[in-house]
């Protein structure tokens, strides 16, 4: 997995609440069997109209907004567990998503793909939206080690929470598979000790 340490970039504002993973990547694009290519269909039905023409009012299509930080409304990533949503955001070029709340499964999927979900207070989120709307080129800095998000130019910042284990993984580019495979002996011992606890379904 790609490491994440710190990032300073401009942001794209998506001031919509309860953005579900069906909007991030609609189900009809889930037929692929590899991880590539989802970026072009990110927010497909919001970014494009039925004739596949870009919707000029959608923030990702507005020329003034660019950058690898997505700032989104409350409860981002709810709904389906599809990891394709995290792959699509990553492939489009986002490295950080900021919201005042993330759905559990999306948050896990993002962390497993080196896409950092930064949860901020509703007040700080409003501040971010306001500053970006005043100046689309304003830089936002995300520092994972310090667990801090800030707008250096305005001298405003907030600390954010992250599971210490996940933080170590992201800072070093480790992922869970390697860790779990390193634990197989302990897992086998657990199985031996507990083999009477569960019936083996006789398939």
């Amino acid at each position: 997995m790609e490491k994440f340490i710190t990032l300073t970039d401009t942001a794209v504002p998506l001031d919509i609440e309860n953005v579900d993973t069906d909007q991030i990547i609609p189900a009809r694009f889930l037929k692929a069997t590899d991880k590539a290519g989802f970026g072009e269909n990110l927010f497909r039905d919001w970014r494009f109209n039925n004739n596949d023409e870009p919707e000029p009012e959608f923030p990702l299509n507005k020329p003034e907004y660019s950058g690898s930080i997505l700032v989104a409304g409350n409860n981002f990533g709810c709904g389906s567990s599809r990891e394709h949503a995290a792959w699509a955001l990553k492939a489009y070029g986002f490295k950080v998503v900021v919201s005042s709340y993330f759905a559990d499964i999306f948050k896990g999927n993002a962390l497993n793909n080196g896409l950092l979900p930064v949860q901020v207070s509703p007040q700080f989120l409003e501040q971010l939206f306001a500053e970006i709307s005043k100046d689309a080129s304003i830089a936002i800095k995300v520092d994972l080690k310090a667990q801090k998000i800030e707008i250096p130019q305005k001298n405003i910042s907030e600390k954010f929470e992250i599971d210490p284990y996940k933080k170590t993984c992201l800072l070093n580019g480790f992922d869970d598979i390697d860790f779990l495979v390193s634990k197989l002996d302990a897992i086998k011992k657990f199985e031996e000790k507990n083999n009477k606890l569960q019936p083996a379904t006789q398939l």
């Binding site: 567990s81 990891e83 497993n112 869970d176 598979i177 779990l180 197989l184 897992i187």
Partner: peptide
């Protein structure tokens, strides 16, 4: 509970998952 595809591969590899207790 539902999981993402990275976790599907973790469960394939170890029959376990790394999860914080809800």
């Amino acid at each position: 509970f539902g999981i993402g595809t990275s976790q599907v591969s973790q469960a394939f590899a170890s029959q376990c998952l790394l999860v914080e207790k809800p």
